[in-house]
């Protein structure tokens, strides 16, 4: 653990600077920009969860959007029934966790990418249920009019306070994940990612660890959904389709799977880049998708990996510690 204290100082400074930037960014901006920034934070949370499943535990999940749906619908139904958002949050998270366990358990019994297949089917099934069971979910018309949380002195009705509210939740979620990744469980995840066979021989119950990673990842999906509900104040099944799960997967890979700060960058690219390109009107999605392909050809380990590569060039002798890779983007 040589030099760790220096790292820690750097890390704290970096995080503080990022936080200040995140606090200053929306000030003086128009509503639309604040809205886009808020959705960037929310999708970052969803991508953080998937990053745990994919980047740390090495399993592809194609159902992150459906966990967002679970979080969003539970929160919506409860807040519409008069619950405070804070009271509606725990049920939303617990249901996401339990569904994650139930879904992951059978898929992870077998080796291979069966979790990907099962989650793909699950995502579409959730869409069908949300659409068809209109007595509960409002069907294709969705649910609307969900209130934004009010904390007495601090009401999130306006866009800017809601941004700060989301930022606060994002910071808490990131800290929690930081704790998980550094806990004994988290080290088990990493051992698993680096060498499943060795991990197993060292007594790590790979299946249980993977299942847990998936279920916790699902909770982050549920949390993102619980934030979407008050942000948009309208939810409908189409917003949680398979395409959105793939979009979250894209965020994780573009940002850098397995890097702690990858999701922040990945979500920024996926949410903000199309906005930047909108001035090209009809062509913006064409340019955007072409850019993503080019990015994957040249920076396959994600944008955050760019730094790692540069560093390796500048200080080629420094030993690369892959187990610390999640912090590489902060150096």
């Amino acid at each position: 653990m040589r030099g760790l204290s220096v790292r820690d100082v750097w890390r704290s400074v970096a995080i503080a600077l990022l936080l200040v930037a995140a606090i200053l960014l929306p000030i003086g901006q128009k509503n639309y920009i604040i809205y886009v920034l808020t959705s960037w934070l929310i999708f970052t949370i969803a991508a953080m969860g998937l990053n745990l499943t994919l980047g740390y535990a090495g399993q592809i999940s194609l159902a992150q959007a459906s966990f967002m749906a679970i979080g969003a619908y539970v929160t919506a139904l409860l807040t519409l029934a008069g619950w405070h958002w804070l009271a509606a949050l725990p049920p939303a998270l617990i249901i996401s966790f339990v569904v994650g366990l139930i879904l992951g358990y059978p898929a992870l019994r077998v080796k291979g990418h069966f979790l990907a297949f099962v989650t793909l089917a699950f995502n579409t099934l959730v869409f069908l249920v949300l659409r068809n069971e209109d007595w509960l979910t409002g069907g294709t018309y969705g649910l609307s009019g969900m209130p934004r949380p009010d904390f007495g002195l601090f009401s999130t009705d306006k866009h800017l306070p809601f941004y700060y509210f989301t930022l606060g939740i994002t910071v808490i979620a990131a800290l929690a994940l930081w704790g998980i990744v550094r806990s004994p469980w988290g080290r088990a995840f990493k051992a698993l990612r680096e060498n499943p066979v060795r991990a197993e021989s060292l007594g790590v119950d790979t299946r249980r660890v993977t299942l847990l990673a998936f279920a916790i990842g699902s909770v982050y999906g549920g949390l993102a959904g619980a934030l979407i509900t008050p942000l948009v104040q309208f939810i409908e099944p189409g917003s949680f389709g398979l395409a959105h799960s793939l979009r979250i997967l894209l965020m994780v890979v573009v940002g850098g799977a397995g890097y702690f700060f990858g999701p922040f960058i990945g979500a920024a690219v996926v949410i903000l880049l199309p906005e930047v390109l909108r001035f090209t009107e009809g062509y913006y999605l064409i340019i955007y998708s072409a850019l993503v392909i080019v990015m994957l050809v040249f920076v396959p380990s994600g944008l955050i990996g760019v730094w790692g590569r540069l560093k390796a060039k500048v200080w080629p002798k420094q030993q690369v510690r892959t187990d610390m890779a999640e912090g590489a983007g902060l150096q």
């Binding site: 592809i60 793939l246 894209l250 890979v253 064409i286 998708s289 072409a290 993503v292 392909i293 994957l296």
Partner: peptide, 19 residues
Amino acid sequence: ILPHGGITLIIATMALGIL
């Protein structure tokens, strides 16, 4: 892209689909 792993390639094919 293939040498960098199946998942990266999956993402690239998704982008190709949009394209």
